[in-house]
Write a protein that binds this DNA or RNA. Structure first.
Lengths: 340, 340
DNA sequence: CTGTTAGCGCATTCAG
DNA sequence: CTGAATGCGCTAACAG
């Protein structure tokens, strides 16, 4: 009767039931050896284990995910892979999640909320068990997708008042702190160099302005804002722009260390003494900051810890627990070096 | 008769058959709208499409992968995520593979063949349709896994004589070229700073030695090899070691720009004129090289292009085509700047 | 402790 | 152009 052609054996890979057949048992028992070995008798277990080893059996995650409605994967969305700030964060994430048996699906949004939305849409098809996402600057559609997916989400890098799980630091306070430091050092014409202009940079800018304001100052001519991605080269360029626009600037807060390094290099090239003629501060405390000449004053941000903590919080959520507190502030520290 | 409790509806997500039911058709037709829309009548199609949009249907990749025995994902194994050399390579990979509808599973091996093996084992469970891997320094077990999986593989970064698909450059030749450049500039006591000591560094070292040899020279006292991961700080440290061990060194080839930058900074600190007293060359042409003072002579390596080309080659293999040639040499270029 | 039954969501095969 | 039947590989639920 049945005249249909069977599909060719698909993957060619060894399956649970092939192992079962070899041993003379059922596939569910083999499955148990893998997932709950204490439920299988010593004898059968060792027998099955040896066949598994012999045949080089390798479980099929797609089948498991389908049957269990859990993928054991986590989507991680960061703005950029070529910025070590985020790759260090990823290391913290990876260390926690891999130890717990999860895979990470890494997505680079290129600092674009639209790209983030599109990546999220793609990754949701994989039914991630959890999501780590950078900041709070999501499109409405992204927020909607997150909500309707009912997948636990932890936001990284910033703090918020909203009712969301998050691990980060107060970017505003950090901008405030480093600007206050410059004020304490006696600088008065303090400029600001900003690039990329993502939400964290804008918060630092707001902190900078607030610090000037509380000192009874303001210095709008010293603010250079450029939406281009940050780079050392851009730092050099923007210094040029600043010196034309506000030649009397005596100190400069750069929104990140890349810009600050570019500024330092350009100062060397132009023979501008740092900090004698111009003090320079950065943000993030990248590896070069401690070695460049003069060494760079900056704000150290605990990226690894953010990733680690956020991933731990997500683990709790994926286990059905409720992390307390829901928001963790990992803080920052002012690193005063030679450049100021 | 049937008294078993049905499983609770698993994911809660909208499925093909729910959409089919709403429209009054079968799930296979809905599937066709997604995968082969030209096979469905205009009328049914628009009707189905609107229900898909209305319900926010999202395909389940696990189910699709299981049914098609294809995951539409590619595993990418690189030594380090915190080295921009590899993140730029990943950008090339990503641009090609995402455009072709593939997801990338990124694995950071920490320069360890054993870690690489363990990651590969984990990722093979996802049935990747292809694999991109760095270099040729795999464990025997890794080679075996790759072979038996029958998944297409492309190796990145280096060249080989073996019969494998690969995209890279002759690390030996690059080391040779930059050392020849130093020789042409008249330097004779040319040292070598190496860290990490991965296969690519060792090839560059071999190229360096060959160049000295063909000039009738050798300078073993000027070779500093340290298995520690590269960093700017390590460059500074190793310079100190070199100056003790071989104070008459007049030029230095650092196995990468991180070390070279550390050397340059430390020279500034110690008041050693570059290139007056010591010429310095790096490798990779990282962003800082063109801006540091003095600007750094180095070898530019086309990382993005390697990733892009390797991914394109892998696409061909996954489509059942045979890439010709099987090995692509993307070359390198000597960038001569102020430091030599 | 072990096995049977059923089904996860989708796509291939073949028959209309 | 559309649909029914079937199975991908695995595991939850239940019954022995």
């Amino acid at each position: 009767m049945a005249s249909r052609k069977p599909r060719p054996t698909q993957s060619g890979r060894v399956t649970l039931s092939e192992i079962a057949e070899r041993v003379g048992t059922s596939s569910i028992t083999v499955s148990r050896v893998l997932n709950a070995p204490h439920l299988v008798s010593e004898e059968l277990r060792t027998q099955i284990e040896s066949v598994i080893a012999e045949l080089g059996y390798m479980p099929n995650r797609a089948a498991r995910a389908l049957a269990r409605a859990r993928s054991e994967s986590v989507a991680v969305l960061i703005p950029s892979l070529s910025n070590t700030v985020f790759t260090q964060l990823l290391e913290g994430v990876r260390d926690v999640l891999h130890a717990a048996g999860y895979r990470t699906l890494i997505g680079d949004t290129r600092y674009s909320p639209e790209e983030e939305e599109s990546l999220l849409r793609a990754y949701l098809e994989h039914s991630p068990d959890g999501i780590l996402i950078t900041g709070f600057d999501q499109t409405n559609a992204t927020r909607d997708l997150l909500q309707r997916s009912r997948v636990p989400v932890v936001h990284m890098m910033e703090m918020t008042d909203a009712d969301m799980y998050s691990v980060g630091l107060e970017q505003f306070d950090a901008g405030l702190a480093i600007t206050r430091h410059l004020l304490e050092r006696g600088y008065r014409s303090i400029g600001f160099l900003g690039a990329q202009l993502d939400p964290r940079v804008m918060e630092r800018l707001a902190g900078y302005r607030a610090a000037l304001h509380e000192a009874g100052l303001n210095y709008p001519v010293g603010e250079i804002l450029d939406p281009t991605p940050s780079s050392i080269g851009l730092g050099a360029t923007l210094l040029g722009r600043l010196l034309e626009q506000a030649p009397h600037t005596d100190a400069l807060f750069c929104c990140n260390d890349d810009l600050a390094l570019g500024v330092l290099f350009e100062c060397q090239r132009r023979g501008i003494p740092v900090p004698g003629k111009l003090a320079v501060a950065g943000f993030n405390d990248l590896a070069a900051a401690a070695w460049v000449h003069p060494t760079l004053t900056t704000v150290a941000t605990p990226r690894y810890e953010i990733g680690h903590t956020a991933a731990s919080m997500l683990l709790q959520l994926m286990n059905g627990e409720t992390p307390v507190p829901a928001k963790k502030d990992v803080g920052f520290s002012l690193i005063v070096r030679e450049s100021t």
